[in-house]
Design a protein around this nucleic acid. Structure first.
Lengths: 190, 190
DNA sequence: CCGACCTAGTCAACAAGTTGAGTATGTGAG
DNA sequence: CTCACATACTCAACTTGTTGACTAGGTCGG
């Protein structure tokens, strides 16, 4: 049921097509929620049926028609109700960690490669989030921004995504050190 | 398919009943993967059917009989294959973040309460992970442990869970400051 | 003018995760 | 003596999330 609320939160910025939402999810909500376009379209249909959003079809000349969705009053109420809580706690749920848990009796070289890849990926995410942050701040200092901006929610969630990926980078680096040393020890014991 | 691998990784420590696995998941694998007992039992049945694990029924006098599962050679191979990768990247997927994203036009007091609750919960987790860490180290220094322990995987994943929760605590504190100030400003503008 | 990529979706099938209840016994606290 | 809690599960129904393929036109580079 949270995808619904994530979609509604995204629609607070104004009406949007399913296609644009999919991209927006990739770009910003993806900090803390990911979904495939298929999931999104299915959910949008249901939300429309439930009266949380309304669609407006826009005919285009040299493009397929698109449907722009926007929040209804009911949708806004539901979203406010959702923000009132309560919210389930969360856990990381990461395949890579499962692999690291089993690394000692598995393919250590393979795990090392996966960690290196993840580290690069996380570094790229950090860079991207930094750019997004600069764009949000738009020249203002953080203090200035927080005092004047209409919405601080997107900034706070961005900070969470940013520190998560920084943490990932640090952990990857640490794990590489530990596992590389271990690999060396196992290759040449004594 | 990753629950399978998480279960197999847990069985590296030796045979275990479904019930004990459920508890073990709560205690340690839960750093990065959570599941309900129902999911676990269902998955164990399938894994047995697929020959990844074998069950040994132990009759007990004053307790229901239990079935102890252990990895088969095939299971070990599958797990090693899994560690070789590749692994899907991950995202946070947290309801609370959805609520914060929408906080500006939602129930700010409710969101604040949720963040406070989450902060306490994360602090409790940190304390618990610290105790687990002390138990794993068992008096040794980290360096000593890493040099001598049979398996370092469980330690590394524990570190990941620990830093994730520490990060949660920090982010909660920061968000509370920002949102409280904002709430005050909205209550008494100018 | 061909192939790759962009816009803007749809459909179907399946795998994974969640929720709620039920079974049956034993132990320890008040 | 009762009530909560621990052991050790099972069953069924449901909601979410994933995978892969398909439609149909437009744009841009070589």
């Amino acid at each position: 049921m949270s995808l619904r609320n994530a979609v509604m939160a995204a629609l607070l910025d104004g009406e949007s097509s399913g296609y644009d939402l999919a991209k927006a999810f990739d770009a910003s909500v993806a900090n803390f929620w990911i979904c495939t376009p298929q999931q999104l379209y299915r959910e949008l249909d249901r939300m429309e049926a439930d009266g949380l959003i309304v669609a407006r079809t826009v005919e285009q000349e040299r493009r397929p028609n698109k449907r722009l969705f926007s929040l209804t009053e009911l949708g806004r109420e539901e979203l406010t109700g959702f923000t009132a809580g309560p919210h389930k706690p969360t856990a990381i749920r990461d395949e890579l960690l499962v692999a690291v848990l089993a690394a000692d009796s598995g393919d250590i070289e393979g795990v090392l490669a996966s960690i290196r890849e993840r580290k690069q990926w996380a570094e790229a995410k950090v860079a991207r989030y930094e750019r997004l942050r600069a764009k949000l701040l738009d020249g203002r200092s953080e203090e200035d921004f927080l005092a004047t901006a209409e919405r601080v929610g997107p900034y706070l969630t961005l900070l969470r995504g940013l520190s998560f990926e920084r943490d990932n980078v640090r952990w990857c680096a640490r794990s590489l050190t530990v596992l590389e040393r271990r690999g060396a020890r196992l290759d040449a014991p004594g």
